[in-house]
Amino acid sequence: MIQVVVNGLVNGAILALMAISLTIIFSILRVPHFGLGGISVWGAFVAYFGVTRFGLNLALAVLLAAVSMAALGVLIEKLAFRPLRGATEDAMFVSAIGVLIAMENAALLLWGSDARSIPAEGLSFVLAVPGLVYLPAMRAVIFAVASLAFLGLYFFVKRTRTGKAMRAVAQDSAAARLLGVPIDRVASYTFALGSAMAGVAGALVGAAFTFNFEMGSPSVLKAFVVVVLGGMGSVAGAIVGGFALGTVDSLTLTYVTSEYKHLVAFGLLILVLVFRPSGIFGQRKLRADV
């Protein structure tokens, strides 16, 4: 039981990373960027080839994944979302689905459908409390990296000038623009930040478990479940929601059903969207229309 909860928390850390990248892009720019699922897949592949082809150590490979995905994220924003600024969220969502499908299948074309795992030298030992909990060191690393990313994000958004600009755009993009905040640059930074985090999340999955080209869509949908649970735009909510869903998922997988593994998460998604659209932690005010 404790083992199951611990496994759930590890999954939860990854989910929380994905959820945060989704929620910052959505709350700052109103772009529901499901393409982040594709970014996480590509991040995992970059880290994988960094380790296997170029002999990088895991930390460098993850960093490489973060940087390259940040660059790719900026490019995607320019091509697929910037021309749609001012269009409806529906339109942006369709474009994001396009990005997701294109990236997953490009990965399939380039690198095939085998399940791979990023080899992690020196991290194959297991931390254990005998008879109670076994935790492979790699999964402990996930915890550490995720926490580091949360802290880094917090300081970036709260303490830097760019972070302040992001918060201004999130509050009221028209007013921010009138006051001279360069929206285009803020958009680029936001996409870089979100994509880097999604890339790291993918690389961590690849190092601790296995990954292949199609892990992106379920993970981004689950991340969306987390975002909704935690309340749109709430980073703290995304972290708590991530751990909650990770644990619930792990428990249902062990004790309820292993075949219908998405059923619980997506059923929950529908229920929350329908009956509590502002999330469990959010204030009840998000439904502005009719």
Binding site: E89, F93, F224, K261, H262, G267, L273, V274, F275, D289
Partner: peptide, 28 residues
Amino acid sequence: PPSFRTRGIYYIIVTIAFQLIASEIFDN
């Protein structure tokens, strides 16, 4: 009726979730 309590992208996402649940049932 329940799904129409949501709007915009939330409605689209409800339909996607329904599609994935249906697929999982067909599959399992």
